[in-house]
Design a binder for these strands. Structure first.
Lengths: 343, 343
DNA sequence: TTGAAAGCGCTACCAG
DNA sequence: CTGGTAGCGCTTTCAA
């Protein structure tokens, strides 16, 4: 169990000072092997050879403690196992990989307390920045982040009262309009909505814009948001669906992937035929939507865009100390069988 | 932009030495507020008050550099966006959270080079251990890990030649037997297999055990593994399926979730009726399997078990420096419509 | 029960 | 172009 080689060992081996080694380790080399710093090529060579020989891998923690940067960013979503977020994480991971950063992912479980805990861990680690899908619109935890001057960008949803963060969100008004209009065009009038009873900005917005659009179409009488708990089980969901149908609902706008999946699963168990018994427009993409019979229509927001925008924004905030921006992405609608025009 | 509070600030504020602060920060407190270390209760109180007041959050990097432990483990899978792995990651994240550890997740993309790179990043970070789904059976990258004395455990598949690591795998022989036997019992004889042409232990094993079982049933004449590239597209997959059917294949054992998804998608596009045109037994669970018409049968391996076993094993290896073990989990089969008995 | 001080490995600044 | 050195924030003896 030999000890891990340190910069000192390399310096000794190469017969130079540790300062030189540090320089060389951070240098980039052109095609001729010339470093982009004030070090002679031969000296650099010696250092590199020593590094090779001792299998030296720098200790980031030590670097972090002396220069303040950890090279780690934190990505905090509700649940990294949920495919919408896991895909975003994956994209961010790739971008970070290319940028030479490490990423730590954490899930809040949509719980404010856990969110606070994972944020604290991230601060302990000394992350250089955070990309956050907040499970609340409360500002408390964010204050900690502010306290430590850590750049942050909100992804997909935000905390309206927290100004210092960047934001990458969807044009949710447009999304709701697309969905409702599409159903309207298909001849549906009693268009309901089922969504979660959570204190999250996008949920609030989607409720609001759905109603706004319904009113705009003169369907205010039908506008009704049915709230269900985030942890609703299949049976409870069936009951909600049953009630909705009894109340004359012809179509449903489902503003999250999760609720969409739950609803179509319930519909299947109940033996409903889409769109005859119920037309559906969901949100975000899932493989299940395409395999389902009929395929499920959905509002699409670009995951690569979400990831890239948030990542580059965060990078800018970290390096240039630039101001927080707000990027709004355009939704589109993918029309499939579940919302085919009424016969 | 005030500076982040350090242990020194807390010490000064509390009027004690930094050593005391360090002790208190690591102490656990019983219900009476008594610390489990040699510090007077009142002193501890003073420290805690100062911590509170200054909003002190310890800097892990500094701790790491002085005591060697980072409190970070790395989990390296093929792709954190693939649901099998993202669920495992999620479970490990929970376990780590409870254990007070941070996790960094990385994807190898099934590429040996990327695998090597993410391992190197992990070493730079000074991770205390790694849970690894190796994209190869080559031992090279693992040697680095050994060099740095970092405990590692292989998850789901392994590198046979690398002894120092722990292992948590499935009983793949049993899995293959279950699948083939089940199809056999349903009256199918020409049972084929489609799998990826990758150098991965579980793929090798599933090929081998499938053939072994076919031979055992006297179906050696039908035993045939059809290899497809990992990145195969829908059209190519359709062609493979078409060929298999032309060659008389009645049933297919699909040894990974990914290939299962691809095959049923192709089957759907081709308008095949399962199990009439083709019986199928897949691997691992996906929501799609349940929604598909008919529901897809699959071999199940417990994700919670996989996660828990590997995590606790790693923890033991880290703390007790205990020896690597090999845990083998039991598969089971979930029979659904896609493999209903032949009519 | 408490404090002083020696590092941990690295960066960054200054001198030569 | 190269080397010396003062920290960075924390842990951990060792003394008091």
């Amino acid at each position: 169990m030999k000890k891990r080689a340190t910069i000192k060992d390399v310096a000794k081996e190469a017969g130079v000072s540790i300062a030189l080694v540090s320089m060389v380790m951070h240098a980039k080399f052109d095609e001729n092997g010339n470093p982009d710093c004030n070090v002679r090529k031969e000296t650099a060579r010696k250092v590199l050879d020593a590094v090779e020989k001792l299998k030296y891998i720098p200790n980031k923690a030590a670097a972090q403690i002396s220069n303040g940067r950890s090279g780690i960013i934190a990505v905090i979503t509700s649940d990294i196992a949920s495919s919408f977020f896991s895909e975003i994480c994956r994209q961010i991971e790739n971008l970070a990989y290319e940028a030479g950063l490490s990423v730590i992912f954490a899930s809040s479980d949509e719980k404010v307390e856990k969110f606070d805990n994972v944020v604290t861990s991230a601060i302990k680690l000394g992350v250089d920045g955070m990309i956050i899908v907040p499970p609340t619109t409360n500002v408390e935890t964010m204050r900690k982040i502010e306290e430590f001057d850590i750049p942050a960008v909100f992804l997909e949803r935000d905390i309206p009262d927290y100004a210092p963060a960047g934001r990458v969100t969807l044009d949710n008004r447009k999304a709701c309009e697309l969905a409702v209009q599409h159903l309207y065009d298909g001849g549906y009038r009693n268009i309901g909505q089922i969504s979660y009873d959570m204190n999250i900005s996008t949920i609030h917005k989607k409720d609001e814009y759905y109603i706004e659009k319904m009113n705009g179409l003169g369907l205010g009488q039908y506008a009704k948001v049915r709230k269900v708990p985030h942890a609703i089980d299949d049976n409870a969901m069936e009951k909600v669906l049953r009630t909705a149908l009894d109340e004359g609902v012809e179509a449903l706008f489902l503003p999250t992937k999760r609720v969409t999946l739950r609803v179509i699963k319930a519909a299947r168990r109940m033996g409903l035929t889409l769109p005859r018994d119920l037309a559906v427009v969901g949100f975000d993409h899932s493989d299940v939507f395409d395999i389902y019979e009929p395929a499920v229509s959905y509002i699409y927001q670009s995951i690569p865009d979400l990831a890239r925008e948030s990542f580059t924004m965060l990078l800018e905030m970290i390096s240039d100390h630039s101001k927080a921006r707000h990027t709004v992405l355009e939704p589109s609608i993918v029309c499939q069988g579940s919302s085919a025009p009424k016969k």
